Computed example of a mutant assay.
Amino acid sequence: MNLLLINPNTSQSVSDLIAAEARRAAAGDTRIEVLTAPFGVAYIETRFESLIGAYAAATLVAEHHARHDAIVVAAFGDPGIDGLREALDIPVVGLTEAALMSACLLGKRFSIIAISRRITAWYRECVQANGLLERLASIRSLEGPLKDIGSVQDDHGERLEALCMSAVEDDGADVIIIAGAPLAGLARSIKDRIPVPVVDGVSSAVCHAQTLASLAPAPARRGSFAPPPVKPNQGLPDALSRLLARDAGRA
Score class of each variant (00 low, 15 high):
residue 44 I to W: 14
residue 96 T to N: 06
residue 56 A to F: 03
residue 170 D to F: 06
residue 161 E to P: 04
residue 139 I to D: 05
residue 178 I to L: 15
residue 58 A to I: 12
residue 180 G to T: 10
residue 151 S to G: 02
residue 52 I to P: 09
residue 218 A to Q: 13
residue 220 A to R: 12
residue 131 G to Y: 07
residue 157 G to A: 13
residue 178 I to M: 15
residue 39 F to K: 06
residue 221 R to A: 10
residue 227 P to D: 13
residue 83 G to Y: 11
residue 65 H to I: 09
residue 114 A to Q: 04
residue 79 P to Q: 14
residue 10 T to Q: 09
residue 56 A to H: 04
residue 93 V to N: 03
residue 251 A to D: 05
residue 27 A to Q: 01
residue 250 R to F: 10
residue 150 G to T: 10
residue 60 L to P: 09
residue 168 V to T: 08
residue 162 A to C: 07
residue 49 E to M: 04
residue 236 L to C: 09
residue 98 A to W: 03
residue 168 V to Y: 04
residue 157 G to K: 11
residue 160 L to R: 09
residue 172 G to F: 13
residue 155 D to W: 15
residue 110 F to Y: 06
residue 111 S to Y: 00
residue 44 I to T: 12
residue 94 G to V: 05
residue 232 P to H: 06
residue 233 N to C: 13
residue 240 L to G: 05
residue 111 S to H: 00
residue 228 P to T: 15
residue 127 V to F: 02
residue 20 A to K: 04
residue 77 G to Q: 12
residue 169 E to L: 12
residue 86 E to A: 05
residue 33 E to T: 10
residue 59 T to C: 15
residue 191 K to D: 13
residue 251 A to N: 11
residue 242 R to H: 08
residue 129 A to H: 14
residue 210 Q to V: 05
residue 36 T to M: 11
residue 36 T to F: 08
residue 233 N to V: 15
residue 182 P to L: 01
residue 214 S to D: 00
residue 157 G to M: 13
residue 134 E to Y: 05
residue 28 G to E: 02
residue 102 S to L: 13
residue 221 R to N: 06
residue 126 C to M: 14
residue 104 C to R: 07
residue 23 R to F: 02
residue 209 A to I: 04
residue 101 M to I: 10
residue 101 M to P: 00
residue 121 A to R: 03
residue 190 I to G: 09
residue 140 R to W: 08
residue 229 P to D: 15
residue 223 G to P: 02
residue 20 A to I: 07
residue 119 I to V: 12
residue 170 D to T: 12
residue 138 S to K: 00
residue 124 R to I: 03
residue 78 D to H: 12
residue 37 A to G: 04
residue 162 A to K: 09
residue 7 N to L: 07
residue 186 L to P: 11
residue 93 V to S: 03
residue 44 I to S: 04
residue 38 P to S: 11
residue 15 S to C: 06
residue 112 I to Q: 06
residue 78 D to C: 00
residue 27 A to H: 00
residue 136 L to D: 00
residue 75 A to S: 12
residue 16 D to A: 08
residue 36 T to N: 11
residue 49 E to T: 07
residue 156 H to L: 01
residue 43 Y to C: 03
residue 22 A to T: 08
residue 128 Q to R: 15
residue 39 F to A: 14
residue 35 L to H: 13
residue 137 A to W: 02
residue 223 G to D: 07
residue 101 M to R: 08
residue 114 A to W: 02
